[in-house]
Structures are given as structure tokens and as C-alpha cells.
Computed example of a mutant assay.
Amino acid sequence: MGRIPHRYGHYLYGVIQSGITCSIAAAIASFPFIKDGAFLQHWFRSWGVAWLTMLPVVVVAAPLIRRLAERMTSRP
């Protein structure tokens, strides 16, 4: 399998980071559905909506947050 060019690393980071974060948040939000046996169904739907919403936000915000953090910290 070929590797993704480095210049697209920012987008790959956004896909991975938003996927993991939304997965955890959807699991927490779906926890009450365990007793009904609908946890996985609710989790998958919640994760999909959250991920499709957050992916563009993360892709746009990540470079801005990185620059802000660099300005707020000092290098040794």
C-alpha cells in the first residue's frame, strides 16, 4: 500500500483525531442505551453524525490551535 504524501498529514491527523474523539464522546452519550440493548445502534449513528460534523472543524482548527500553542510556549 502506498503512503500518503507528507503535505496531506494535516488532513490525516484531522481524520484520525476527530474519529477517535467522536467515538469516545458517542460511547459516553450512548451509555444509557445499554439496558435497552440499543447501545451499538445508537453509538454508531451518534458517532457518524458527530464525526461528519467535527471533521471539517478539526481540519480547519488544528493548524490554528498549533500556531496558538507555539506562540504561547517557549522553546528551550
Rank of each mutant, 00 (worst) to 15 (best):
A62P: 00
I24F: 12
I4Y: 06
R71M: 10
V57H: 01
H10W: 05
F31M: 08
G48H: 03
F39Y: 15
F33W: 08
W51G: 02
P76N: 12
W43S: 12
R7V: 12
D36P: 02
T73D: 04
C22R: 02
R71W: 14
L12V: 15
Q41I: 15
G14S: 13
A26V: 11
L64R: 14
R67F: 03
F33S: 10
D36A: 14
M1R: 04
W43M: 05
A25K: 07
S46Y: 11
A50L: 09
A50M: 07
P5R: 05
W43C: 08
T21P: 04
G37K: 13
W51E: 04
F39N: 08
L55Q: 00
S23V: 11
A27E: 02
G48C: 03
S30R: 01
M72P: 03
G14H: 04
A61V: 00
A38R: 15
S74D: 09
L55V: 01
T73V: 07
K35R: 14
W43H: 15
H6K: 03
M1Q: 03
F44H: 14
G9N: 06
P5E: 04
P76Q: 12
S23W: 14
L68T: 11
P5M: 00
P63F: 01
A27V: 02
V15C: 08
I65W: 13
F31W: 06
G19E: 15
A69D: 09
M54N: 05
A29W: 04
L12R: 07
L40K: 05
P5V: 01
E70R: 07
F31G: 00
S74H: 10
R75E: 11
S74I: 11
S18L: 11
V60K: 13
